[in-house]
């Protein structure tokens, strides 16, 4: 069957992560694992709208910031449990997404225009957060008041609970995308040619909005996790271009528009950048991000479908060779001429 191989990879990956997370590895490695899963999770959410539907957002950190700030502000102001805050953050992210996505899709914003609009939304959110100093602490940011380990308050002294939570979130996101098979096909068709998709009875706007809403909700939840885990946020870090680009990066390098692409991208990139940051970060700040940039450019030029496309490319090459041999022996000349 077609899906058996990714399914096997998914199961092995999940098991490996569970074992790794609970084995006696250094705390720092656990931190890298959590970070990897966070980006795999948010990259998977990004991928739904931007990979499958091809509406490239480079402003998704807006929704990370909304999720994070909603959670922390509700906790600081009215001591609302971060679990509820997380839900509220996700819902608020959906609200903001609808505000922008509806007109975007309604007015048929595509290609570069959609991307520019997404960046504008990110900048608006970032500027608003900076300017609402009373509530957000402005550009100085907010820190989470320390509480001893408490499940109800979503604060833990060890890494394991955070690991488990983000593992579950990641699992849910991947399984959700997996389950949405019909929608994935619709979104792909819309990405390829939205008029042709409409002519086949596919509702373009409905499916785009659906992908945007789920994407924003999941990323908003990711923002809530971010603030609970890092205990500190400021508008530039959580709502800036870095996170937005990283989400795109893990998905694209892994393989955008595929179920496991973002996860594979995160598994490769996040540890790499953390190792770079740890080893040469003090002498060469920014080196790990520089590597990101170079990898992105190289991937876009040489491997636009990402790492997951490598087996397919090899297979296609083999088939082409086999076909060449066939046509070569059968009909002379013909289709092999372009090789």
């Amino acid at each position: 069957m077609k899906f058996s191989k990714p399914l096997v990879i998914f199961i092995i990956l999940t098991l490996a992560l569970v074992i790794a997370g609970f084995s006696p590895i250094p705390v720092y490695v656990k931190h890298v694992l959590i970070l990897t899963l966070l980006y795999a999770y948010m990259g998977t959410a990004w991928n739904l709208m931007c990979g499958y539907a091809g509406r490239l957002s480079l402003g998704h950190s807006a929704f990370v910031a909304i999720g994070a700030y909603t959670t922390i502000i509700l906790f600081r102001q009215i001591t609302l449990s971060p679990w509820l805050g997380m839900l509220m953050g996700g819902l608020l992210a959906v609200g903001v997404m609808l505000l922008i996505a509806y007109p975007c899709f309604r007015f048929g914003l595509k290609g570069p225009y959609f991307t520019l609009a997404s960046i504008a939304v990110m900048e608006i959110v970032q500027n608003l957060l900076t300017s609402m100093r009373d509530l957000t602490g402005g550009s100085l940011g907010l820190s989470l008041p320390y509480k001893p380990t408490s499940l109800a308050l979503f604060q833990f002294d060890g890494k394991e609970p955070y690991f488990l939570i983000i593992l579950v979130l990641w699992f849910i996101a991947v399984a959700l995308v997996w389950k949405m098979e019909r929608t994935r096909y619709y979104l792909e068709a819309i990405r390829e040619d939205q008029d042709a998709a409409a002519a086949l009875g596919i509702s373009v706007n409905k499916n785009l909005i659906k992908s945007a809403v789920i994407s924003a909700f999941l990323v908003g939840i990711g923002g809530a996790f971010y603030v609970q885990y890092f205990r500190y946020i400021d508008p530039a870090t959580v709502g800036g271009f870095s996170i937005a680009l990283n989400l795109a990066l893990v998905a694209i390098i892994g393989g955008s528009g595929t179920i496991l692409g973002p996860t594979i991208g995160a598994v490769l990139l996040i540890p790499l950048s953390e190792v770079l940051r740890m080893t040469v970060g003090s002498q060469l700040p920014g080196l790990h991000l520089l590597v990101y940039g170079i990898l992105l450019v190289i991937t876009i030029i040489y491997l636009p479908k990402g790492i997951v496309s490598i087996p397919g490319i090899i297979r296609a090459r083999k088939i082409r060779k086999a076909n060449l041999a066939l046509t070569g022996s059968g009909i002379a000349g013909g289709s092999g001429a372009d090789e």
């Binding site: 792909e188 390829e192 008029d195 409409a198």
Partner: peptide
């Protein structure tokens, strides 16, 4: 109605310049 609703009602059109989904396989 929207074009997709028209299709669901039972009227389907082709395009003068054929518009396959280029990145999907023929069977997809």
């Amino acid at each position: 109605l929207t074009p997709d609703a028209v299709c669901l009602k039972g009227i389907t059109r082709t395009f003068q310049i054929a518009r396959p989904f280029p990145g999907l396989s023929v069977s997809d």
